[in-house]
Design a protein around this nucleic acid. Structure first.
Length: 430
RNA sequence: UCCUCAGUAGCUCAAUGGUAGAGCAUUCGGCUGUUAACCGGAGGGUUGUAGGUUCGAGUCCUACCUGAGGAGCCA
């Protein structure tokens, strides 16, 4: 008999099934044992009665500890009392290993302890749900872009010299020299967009920022589309359609996980394009109206973003930030050059920025001027300037943060649970 | 770097300056329908570290270490 998985077990109702997994929890009642078995696809209660399995196997099953591994055979029965709707009546079992005392008991634990045991914490049901949502965020985002003429074109993780100043970059030895871990694939995306038209990169990015908040990781994953001949409005449209697609897929394919996370999905169902668009200057006005002391020219902190998101039930755009607080490559707004054609997408319910992007400078002279203003090493940008020497066109792109998006969709507080092994300023293990 | 809080059994937490305790986990026993099962017994402690005050410190004071929450920072 071929092994099956718990997620597929409903197909074998009334028949015998073979499962391979681990013990999630056990209960016993004299001559009955209830063994919760998980196999990565789900959890099912397996029942052993002394009468059915015999003295020898019954004794052996009694030795099972939490997270012991076992193979089990039994009859699949529908049972309304079972959480998944089915239970397994054990006929045969093979213990693979009796686990030592498992550190993560079914009761509460503190975050430090859980993070120290992240490699085991991943087996818990809430972590399972979150990471399944993450996988769906990635899958659906790539699916949307792949289906809309984009080419996946990944960018290097080791990058030469300092592209945007070294303070927030991790430096690594590179033979006799040094290189830096990428903090964005964007500059390379601009090159591949000029080669292929519509591209996206997907990979880890690294920021040596000393941020210690629920929204920051030093290593996080970004999906970054870049489109030749696209302007700010084009890119906002792409962003909102992409996010609408991701949210739709997660609602459709990860309904069970969202339920386990007790996510209020009615809020996610409201996420439909187009999203509201708010000019930076209007956002400042709005903050002031709400009693927040905020001056034109500043960047929004997490509390400011939270106040702004109060007004909306869907994600929304804040566009045309002051050039002074944005990156050197942002195209100035022709209507008002103090502002640039940049855009952040903020998620509702206080989650804040999940996407950042904008239109890039296309003009060679202006880009060179900005590189000099920002005191960046000109020679390192020669290849980047080439993109403005040879067939320069308007182009735009953005980067969507996978963990922040996942945290919002799951309705959980901290991004560190949205990646299998989080890296934060004071934590590198496990 | 700054501010706030915390560190006691493997875990989550109690303990008025006066005998360090409970639940979970482990272990032994009981129970034929349990749902973070339940009931009974057992083992399990250098109270983060180093000083200090005191007749007496888990508790008060000082320094340090570790962690958490937040701020700054976040193309």
């Amino acid at each position: 008999m071929a092994p099956t998985t718990i997620s597929e077990i409903h197909r074998l109702e009334g028949q015998e099934a073979h499962l391979r997994g681990w013990v999630y929890n056990t209960r016993s009642s004299g001559k009955l044992q209830f063994i919760l078995v998980r196999d990565g696809s789900g959890v099912i209660q397996a029942v052993a009665s002394l009468k059915n399995v015999g003295e020898e196997l019954f004794q052996e099953l009694g030795r099972l500890t939490q997270e012991s591994s076992l193979e089990v055979w039994g009859m699949v029965k529908a049972d309304p009392r079972a959480p998944g709707g089915f239970e397994l009546s054990i006929t045969r079992a093979k213990i693979v290993q009796i686990a030592q005392e498992y550190p993560i008991s079914p009761k509460e634990h503190g975050i430090e302890f859980l993070l120290d045991h992240r490699h085991l914490w991943l087996r818990s049901s809430l972590q399972h749900a979150i990471l399944r949502v993450r996988a769906e965020v990635i899958r659906s985002a790539r699916e949307y872009l792949d289906d809309h003429g984009f080419l996946n074109m990944d960018t290097p993780i080791l990058t030469p010299a300092a592209c945007e100043g070294t303070t927030t970059l991790f430096q690594v030895e590179y033979f006799e020299e040094f290189s830096f871990l990428t903090q964005s694939g964007q500059l390379y995306n601009e090159a591949t967009a000029a080669a292929f038209g519509k591209v996206y990169s997907f990979g880890p990015t690294f920021r040596a920022e000393k941020s210690k908040t629920r929204r920051h990781l030093t290593e996080f994953w970004m999906l970054e589309p870049e489109v030749a001949y696209a302007g700010l409005n084009d890119i906002m449209e792409l962003e909102e359609k992409l996010i609408e697609h991701i949210v739709g897929r997660v609602l459709e394919r990860r309904a069970e996980e969202l339920k386990r996370l007790e996510r209020d999905t009615s809020k996610l169902e409201k996420v439909k394009a187009p999203f509201p668009r708010l000019h930076y200057a209007d956002a400042v006005k709005r903050l002031n109206e709400k009693g927040v002391d905020f001056q034109w020219g500043g960047d929004f902190g997490a509390p400011d973003e939270a106040v702004l998101t109060e007004d909306y039930e869907t994600p929304f755009f804040v566009h045309r930030f002051p050039s002074q607080i944005k990156a050197f490559y942002m195209e100035p707004d022709p209507a008002d050059p103090k502002h640039c054609l940049s855009v952040d997408c903020l998620a509702p319910e206080g989650y804040g920025e999940i996407v950042g992007g904008g239109q890039r400078i296309a003009d060679y002279d202006l880009l060179l001027e900005r590189i000099r203003e920002h005191k960046l090493p000109e020679e390192a940008f020669e290849w980047y300037l080439d993109l403005r020497r040879y067939g320069s066109v308007p182009h735009s792109g953005f980067g969507i943060g996978v963990e922040r998006t996942t945290a919002w969709l799951c309705g959980i507080e901290h991004v560190r649970e949205c990646i299998p092994f989080p890296r934060t300023i004071y934590r590198m293990k496990p």
